[in-house]
């Protein structure tokens, strides 16, 4: 049997009060792995986030004109924040 893992679509609700939005997809062999992978790839394990994963093959879509939402990046690891770095005086475009 080939090692190919099926595709799952990922939906994330970043904060209480907002709804789930589509953020992308992951490959995984099963639901539990898909959830873990989605948590790692799309939320970097930020707390308080709700994640749905759905096998891509199970999604029924209306035709053209369907709307995909945009998504926010996770905010947990400070190294990712450009403000964390001391940017010397005069250094532009950083």
């Amino acid at each position: 049997m080939s090692g190919q893992w099926p595709l799952w679509e990922v939906f994330v609700r970043p904060r209480r009060g907002l709804s789930h939005t589509h953020v992308g997809s992951v490959h995984a062999p099963d639901a539990a792995t898909a959830l873990q992978n989605a948590r790692d790839v799309y939320t970097r394990r930020q707390e308080g986030v709700s994640i749905w994963v759905v096998p891509a093959a199970q999604i029924t879509a209306s035709s053209p004109d369907e709307k995909d939402a945009y998504f926010d990046p996770a905010a947990d690891k400070i190294y990712r924040h450009p403000t964390f770095y001391h940017v010397p005086e005069g250094a532009k475009h950083l």
């Binding site: 945009y70 690891k77 400070i78 924040h81 403000t83 950083l94």
Partner: peptide, 24 residues
Amino acid sequence: YGNDFPTDAASSGGELLEQVAAAE
């Protein structure tokens, strides 16, 4: 990773981030 650091990613300056925000 430092809960004592500010978490406001949007406040960073930088023309490039502004361009990304404009594209968004």
